[in-house]
């Protein structure tokens, strides 16, 4: 058994390798009906290389990436700031909560038609969609995080001479971080899913748009390349926030 120990960290790679292997074999030998629409894995890899080399994939990827980064960071920051105020100050919560609870159930993509008319088809459109998609979940996780901070810790801080602002910054916000990170982690992946959908429907550049173009040309290999890029980005964004959460709160949790 011990001789196999070196394998353990790599263990999860094995099923993935097997998956690609089966895919390759099935597609190469036409083992399923309609194999015309099912390119082998190696063809997809080749296409990935082509698209990267001629810059098409890189350009579209960068457009999507920049939209996600801007929309997601502004949406999250707004969510954290307003969520903190709502969690800490009851009056702010009472004022904003009814409005937000009306807007929150609307799916981010549901805003697309109205935003297309208001802002036109341009760079602002996907950024606003991503903003909306990131804002609400981060907001509600922040509110919950701040509200669940033990009130006695706040009392202690008061007796130690801390002002309201001190308490918010040094006690409430740090203790709400685990909840805030939960919101960020979930939305980091979601932002990618939403941007692809938005680009497929309304915007002529980005991974989503490339996906639609490939579909109209029946280039299944390119479609699959786009899907793989999407999967990798969702995963690595979520992983990034898991890593950050551990880095920031791991010492005391």
């Amino acid at each position: 058994m011990n001789k196999l120990n070196w394998l353990k960290p790599q263990w999860s790679i094995l099923p993935v390798v097997m998956f690609f292997g089966v895919w390759e074999v099935v597609a190469r030998f036409g083992l399923i009906p309609g194999h015309f629409f099912f390119p082998p894995f190696t063809t997809v890899v080749q296409e990935f290389y082509h698209l990267t080399a001629n810059g098409v994939l890189v350009d579209n990827f960068l457009s999507s990436l920049i939209r996600v980064l801007i929309g997601f960071s502004t949406g999250s920051i707004a969510g954290i700031v307003i969520g903190t105020l709502m969690g800490y100050k009851e009056n702010v919560d009472k004022t904003l909560h009814p409005i937000f609870s009306l807007l929150y159930p609307i799916p981010a993509l549901g805003w697309l038609p109205i935003l297309m008319l208001w802002f036109g088809i341009g760079e602002m459109l996907p950024i606003i969609i991503i903003f909306i998609c990131s804002f609400f979940p981060v907001l509600y996780n922040t509110v919950t995080g701040i509200k669940t901070v033990d009130r006695n810790l706040i009392k202690v801080a008061k007796t130690l001479g801390a002002s309201e602002r001190n308490i918010l910054i040094t006690i409430a916000l740090p203790l709400a971080l685990p909840n805030i990170f939960t919101g960020l982690r979930l939305e980091a992946g979601m932002a990618w899913r939403v941007i692809i959908a938005a680009e497929m429907v309304a915007i002529p550049t980005g991974i989503g748009a490339l996906l639609m173009k490939a579909e109209s040309l029946i280039r299944i290999d390119i479609v699959i390349v786009c899907l793989i890029v999407l999967a990798v980005m969702c995963l690595s964004f979520e992983r990034f926030f898991i890593f950050m959460e551990h880095k920031v709160t791991g010492k005391w949790r």
């Binding site: 006695n152 130690l160 040094t170 005391w252």
Partner: peptide, 30 residues
Amino acid sequence: QRRGIGYLFQDLMLFPHLDVASNIAYSLKV
């Protein structure tokens, strides 16, 4: 904040996200 009192709570209520030195230093920092 301005009553100048040291208060030891029943459940002690140490700040979980601060190490011992920072817990003790809290009032001095603020």
